[in-house]
Design a protein around this nucleic acid. Structure first.
Lengths: 190, 190, 190, 190
DNA sequence: AATGAATGAGGCTTCATTCAT
DNA sequence: CATGAATGAAGCCTCATTCAT
């Protein structure tokens, strides 16, 4: 029962510009968590709260939901790039990362799809396509993938898989992922 | 606070209980349109408005979003049952209906997935599975589908396809649908 | 999942005018129950539903909440009149009835107070006052009540008691009633 | 659907966080007024409007009706504590404050009674009881109150009085208050 | 005279966004 | 540059009341 006669407002100290990058990271982490737990429609403000950051800062870093989604997407793509860089990575490894990222990814996908024409989104799509193309070339050369398969096939499969995984219960993900991958392996086999 | 500018009270005439079934149909039609155009997150009230029906009537017929989704889903399943009944229907025909229904279907899927444990939803899922099983038996007998394929495979494929189609632009649907079906045909081939 | 293609509406048979008084009784009983359970602010329609009667019939019998309250009040007063008629009834008996009726009564009181100028309400108030006056005359004659007490005192006490009882938990009613009556007995003693 | 007739966007200026405590006070004042005038069932939003404050701010300060009631109650109890602190205050002074606060108090009482188990409400009840106990001890010591009276008696009387006063017309309050206090004086006399 | 569906106003609450400090 | 309160529009849902049958 705060009596609050002369209203002390004990607000968090302003830590100055130094806090910028740190806040940005906190926001991204928080956004992943929030979107994972509550879906895309989670209150935008929940992200700020979870990150322990003011509403205003959230808006400064990410002027809208798309910007936030793009930033997360960017991290995902970066992770994929790194993970798939080694020569020995296979299509199966791609599906592994996709499966791992699925839940957040699809909230993402839904969002990015809604802003398909945003330049940032387009750029990220292109980066992802690059990865896929390099991978595909290797897989084809190794005879693990037939000539009838092109990058669009892989991307479609990845999208469908991510979408499906994001919709279902945690408990069913592993099995569903395995089943889908069996299908795609057969579909893509040489 | 009706201002009652000209003493006009333009409350729509109460057409009496006779309007009931008609309203129900109008609401379902409107719901399909609205969800197709604006996705699941469209204001629930938009459905009533589009149907030309009072808010209250919407709630009487469908106490919540799930009830409405289940009713649409029911119509879809009924259509699928009828369409796939003839002996000569194939897996490709299933993918045809799915593709046709995709946009609404996925709003549906998202919704039904959210209420996976609603008895009505469960019952409809079971009906769909029945159809798939009958179809699969025929396809297998005809040698068009391999023994490695089970009903869950078909249902997964249908779900992934519908999900994907619902996310993309109208313009890309035909091609994407064709591509996915090529993949599934190969995956399921004997 | 009613398909409802040609909408049969199996409505309750119209039992004709004979049902009138029966419905009225059912409505009053239902109203007591509903107001007791859910307070005055219970949906008006809940009364009709509980009574197993159409909305329209409720409105026909009782054009508004006040009319309904007045009718219940009327029954209460009638009961009080009968109960307190015998020579040997005392002030304590009055408090007994009040306590019994308290929960519904106060929903009533709140409502009637809101329509203090409704003729029906005024008439009922007068009838209650009559009862009180007769009782008071007897009690005074018997030397059980002092000369300093008038009808308004009794009515005030009754009102305060009913109000209090209506607010508290079922479990505390007996004790609170006893305590209040101890106070009033002392206050009114010769 | 803001029609935006002249491109005018007359959104009230955001006066910033500084407005916080001021808003809180305005809301409490407004709540007292609104509840006094229209009873507990007044639209919650009326409080915000009366206070000249956005809906959202109302909800920020008081997440629900109970929180608001508790805050008003808190002010009342604080006032009572201060007013009854001096040695020379009597039971009659208590009834004075109660009478003064009656109208709002009972909206309060009705509300707090509905949330009897809210910790804030419990704490306030305890504070009130403390005041009553101190007062009662003095009155008893002074021989103005009999040994048969305990704190529960006083609290019951106060509750009944407040309840009654809140129900009746402004015009009758003074007389009713006087009458009730005559009764209690007699009931509690040594 | 009874029935119960239809109607829509209005209260409730949440949330995106702005902006004083 | 960060903070978080303020704002109000807009969706949700309930309910009093009407009225065709």
């Amino acid at each position: 029962m705060p009596v609050d006669i002369e209203g002390e407002v004990p607000r968090k100290a302003n830590r100055g510009p130094a806090a910028g990058p740190e806040n940005r990271r906190a926001l991204l982490r928080a956004a992943r968590e929030v979107f994972t737990e509550s879906g895309l429609s989670a209150p935008f403000s929940a992200v700020a709260k979870r990150a322990g950051v003011g509403q205003g800062s959230l808006y400064r870093h990410f002027p809208d939901r798309t910007a936030l989604a793009a930033a997360i997407f960017e991290e995902n793509v970066a992770e994929i790039e790194v993970f798939l860089a080694p020569e020995e990575r296979t299509l199966d490894d791609l599906f592994d990362v996709i499966s791992d990222q699925a839940v957040v990814s699809t909230a993402l996908i839904d969002l990015t799809v809604g802003n398909r024409h945003d330049p940032a989104v387009i750029a990220l799509g292109a980066r992802f396509r690059e990865v896929v193309e390099r991978l595909l070339a290797r897989e084809r050369a190794a005879g693990r993938v037939g000539a009838h398969v092109d990058a669009a096939d892989i991307m479609l499969a990845a999208g469908m898989l991510a979408g499906e995984l994001s919709r279902i219960d945690e408990a069913e993900r592993a099995e569903t992922s395995a089943r889908a991958r069996r299908q795609f392996r057969r579909a893509f086999a040489a």
